[in-house]
């Protein structure tokens, strides 16, 4: 009996330890984000040059992601239309395909798929960049030159991601609808104009706004996790690989968790209107 009790206590202790670690990690993320966002507004560095750095980041995380985001969300839209039509055809409700695709893509899949592509492209890159800079002493060099790495490296990334991820999400909404349209026109018996009219009628502004709000938060999370992992890189090239991997895994997990919270919230409140 005593053995069982000890092992139960051990389990409890381990659970407690894990919970504590989790909370500490989230606290670290919150601290990093708030400091970086504060530095966006009261940067000790030259405003003009900080803006240029943010614009450069925006080009690579936003504009650079357009081709791959377009391709993926176009096919996601196409898949949604195909899967939807498979079921709806039996009910003779093919006219609902545009609405199904439009709502699914704008409210959920557009922002989510965008976030996952951005994690793969940029979240991992942030962790690798900052991690490598830690290993090669470049972070120390920045500090030695009186350039705060948070202001110099992290703040521009937050600005770029906060602006570009929502933009990408809107773009991916459009591409998803186009994907659905490709099916609708070639195999669903819609005209292009008819498909778009049905899409327009099915959508409310709140559907798109919900997606934008979510992707804004996703952008902040991806940046915070990527940079945090980068800074926590230990010594050696192997460590850079570890922090890159964990940036991707943790970002995906956190994005999905936040997505669940948002979706439940919007479900209960009836969405933003």
């Amino acid at each position: 009996m005593a053995v069982a009790a000890t092992s139960r206590l051990n389990l409890l202790a381990r659970l407690g330890g894990a919970a504590e670690e989790c909370l500490a990690y989230l606290g670290g993320l919150a601290q990093l984000s708030s400091r970086a966002l504060w530095l966006v507004f009261v940067s000790p560095l030259k405003r003009r040059r900080s803006f240029d750095r943010a614009a450069g980041q925006a080009m690579s995380v936003g504009v650079g992601a357009i081709p791959i985001v377009s391709l993926i969300t176009f096919f996601i839209g196409l898949i949604m239309a195909l899967q939807g039509a498979y079921e709806l055809r039996r009910l003779g409700a093919m006219q609902l395909v545009p609405a199904l695709v439009a709502v699914a893509v704008t409210r959920e899949l557009g922002p989510l798929i965008t976030a996952i592509v951005v994690i793969g492209r940029s979240g991992s890159a942030f962790a690798a960049e900052i991690g490598t800079m830690r290993v090669t002493e470049e972070l120390d060099a920045l500090e030695a030159m009186a350039l705060d790495p948070m202001a110099f490296l992290v703040a521009p990334k937050f600005v770029a991601m906060a602006v570009m991820v929502p933009c990408l999400a809107v773009w991916s909404d459009l591409m998803g609808v186009l994907g659905g349209c490709a099916f609708g026109v070639t195999a669903g018996g819609f005209t292009t104009l008819g498909y778009f009219t049905s899409t327009r009628n099915a959508l409310t502004a709140s559907d798109v706004v919900t997606g934008i709000v979510k992707s804004f938060v996703f952008g902040l999370i991806i940046t915070a996790v990527g940079c945090q992992e980068g800074f926590s890189t230990g010594a050696g090239a192997q460590e850079v690989g570890r922090s890159t991997t964990s940036a991707v895994v943790r970002s995906i997990l956190m994005v999905i968790l936040v997505d669940v919270v948002f979706t439940i919230f919007f479900y209960i409140t009836g969405g933003l209107s």
Partner: peptide, 9 residues
């Protein structure tokens, strides 16, 4: 720095 630590970017 020992290794230079020039910013690679």
């Amino acid at each position: 720095f020992q290794g230079g630590a020039l910013l690679g970017s």
